[in-house]
Amino acid sequence: MSTRDLFTLHNSHFRIGVGLTAAILIVTAIGGFIVLPFAQPWVQFANVWDAICSAAGLPQRAASVTAPEQTRRLSEVVLTSNTLARPSQEAIGRGATLAQRCAICHGPTGVSRADSPNLAGQYAAVIYKELLDFRSGARSNAVMTPFATNLTDQEIADLSNYYAYLPRLPAYHPTPQLPKPNIVIYGAPMRGIAPCGSCHGSLDNKAGSPWLEGQSEAYMKAQLQAFASGERRNDISQQMRNIARAMTAQEIEQAAAYYASQPPDVVKAVD
């Protein structure tokens, strides 16, 4: 008997093999797509087809339920490791001119005396993302929003490149260096908190995460609290909101105080 005879209904192995497989598939499909959806008393289906679509994972919205209105804009910035890579000297020069309007808060050398972030030597991708978010409304601030609203894409890129180009200088509010608190190097695994240092330097750096060494303690604390309350929400995957919500008030204090006490020249040289 050759293989050709195998794929005929005369062959009992074919009949049994295919028949049993099909039967199991049909029974499990009826179970998974019809019986079990209706076995959930808390879910209402209009008809069988509705239940099947739901079990198949087809995204659908029942007519009776209105979509929650999106009241606040979400961040739409996509960062890659190539974002703003290798800027030209002209771009940095244009950025320097534009940056004069930022100096009042962020300092003429990119180091702030006003509890605003120090921008000198910050990663270009970080400034780029925040400016775009301020412009789109994904992040809002009474002072920053008006500045960002009228910036073009090109101006935002130039500003980012300029500040990334500046040398990292010690801040005006140096404090004695503190030991690394647990939250920075270990996080809190049982509460799902990754170590701060695994994205913000000290251990590793992830695209879009600023280095924090020497930044204003008051500013960092305020941002963590804003993430925790949901007031700030331009972290795309909610990573900072989830972390900040799970942090204790003491951990927020510790993390902010620790990073503020570090000189910026210890930023991990990975760039």
Binding site: I24, L25, T28, A29, G32, L36, S54, A55, A56, G57
Partner: peptide, 17 residues
């Protein structure tokens, strides 16, 4: 979340097999 519950059930049943 991206996989429908019906398919998860079918796969579960075949895993038993």
């Amino acid at each position: 979340p991206q996989v429908g519950a019906g398919f998860k059930f079918i796969h579960s049943a075949f895993t038993a097999l």
